[in-house]
Amino acid sequence: MVVAERKPIEEILAMVADFKKVLLVGCKGCVTVCCAGGTKEVGILASALRIARKKAGNPLEVVEHTLERQCDPEYVDQLGPMLQENGFDAVLSMACSVGPQFIAKKYPIQVFPMLNTTFIGGALEHGVWAEFCQSCGNCIIHNFGGLCPIARCSKSLMNGPCGGSANKQCEVSPEIDCIWHLIYDRMVELGQVEKLRNVFPIKDWSTSRDGGPRKIVREDLKL
């Protein structure tokens, strides 16, 4: 899933400094799962913003609403009636950065991102998430025991660990596993370590963001 985290409240308060009434919109997709922008997080942020502005003697009306998803126009369309009637100064989106962009595309009102969209990843345990994919657009992990050296090696090395690998840790931080050490262990476990002996060829990054913003068209699904 897309993993995100809330921006510092101070930064958000600066964004809304001139407003009296805002619509804070959560998303029930990925950011609900990673506890960054679901109904609950919308409630917490709304409360924090109200507390801050009450304290400042300049109350902010925060209307809370959470959409099924913000990355599909049909759900974003649901904001239409609310925005038409209620005199909002701005929309604050608690989705990944797709959400605010979809809202901005649809409605002539200022939109602010409440989250920093951080990575594609998964939960290591409750409350801990890590990056697993860089969406390079051409998956090669089967060559590496099912582990991704592009996203998970600090240098995206394709031919083994750099000289900084020590005690299974990356030189960048002891918090980062040396993915190449894990790949090596996994290939030994699978009895395929000799596959790592071949020079892995230079990668074609044109399928990645380097080829420009990407689009997928599926004619079979079009309505």
């Binding site: 510092p8 409240i9 507390i51 304290k55």
Partner: peptide
Amino acid sequence: KILEEVGL
């Protein structure tokens, strides 16, 4: 932490 962030 949130209170600290909002200045309380």
